[in-house]
Write a protein that binds this DNA or RNA. Structure first.
Length: 167
DNA sequence: GGCGTGATTGTTGCC
DNA sequence: GGCAACAATCACGCC
């Protein structure tokens, strides 16, 4: 049983929920919810100019680079989403993969290989990455809470305008 | 020179 | 429950 398929959704309460154990989830949820409002404004066309309710192929999606830029412009001080466990694994995997396959440098290929490898890994192997991701998420929650606080108190408004002028 | 693309999974919130 | 967005990475292509 211990080696059952990893449940992403459950990974929140996963292996070492060192973070969420400190505070009730509801609090965190509420905090992130507020953040989601900011994101939604972007989603609904605030930046992209179109709602993405329709399913579209990845190729048709707005480029991540563009999204990054847009996001940067909107709130430089906003904490970034922490990488997921898979992304931490991807870092390790990429190093190994490039050592073994120096010819393959494309992240497309690495990503594919990493995805396949990830699927073959046991839960125990993934635990360490889930652990890191959980910790980072706890940090992210804290940072986000502070960020929202500042937003509500209006401290960031000036700096945000500043950042826009900065661009 | 600089910017966009692609490929992957996990997480999370809204509808 | 489903969908959409976003997180990192970086060689390569295009303008």
């Amino acid at each position: 049983m211990a080696k059952g398929p990893p449940k992403p959704k459950n990974s929140r309460s996963s292996p070492s929920s060192s973070a969420s154990a400190h505070e009730p989830n509801t609090k965190l949820v509420l905090k992130i919810k507020s953040n989601e409002n900011l994101r939604r404004s972007v989603r609904q066309g605030g930046v992209t100019g179109q709602r993405k309710k329709e399913y579209r192929p990845k190729s048709a999606m707005i480029s991540k680079a563009k999204q990054k830029k847009i996001h940067k412009k909107f709130d430089k001080k906003k904490p970034k989403k922490p990488p997921t466990a898979f992304f931490y694994f991807l870092e390790d995997f990429r190093k190994e993969f490039q050592e073994q396959n120096p010819d393959i440098k494309s992240m497309r290929d690495i990503g594919k290989a990493c995805g396949e490898k990830w699927k073959t890994m046991t839960y125990e192997e993934k635990v360490q990455y889930y652990d890191i991701a959980t910790e980072k998420r706890a940090e992210f929650d804290k940072a986000m809470a502070e960020y929202i606080k500042r937003q509500e108190s209006g401290e960031d408004q000036e700096s945000e305008e500043d950042s826009e002028f900065d661009e």
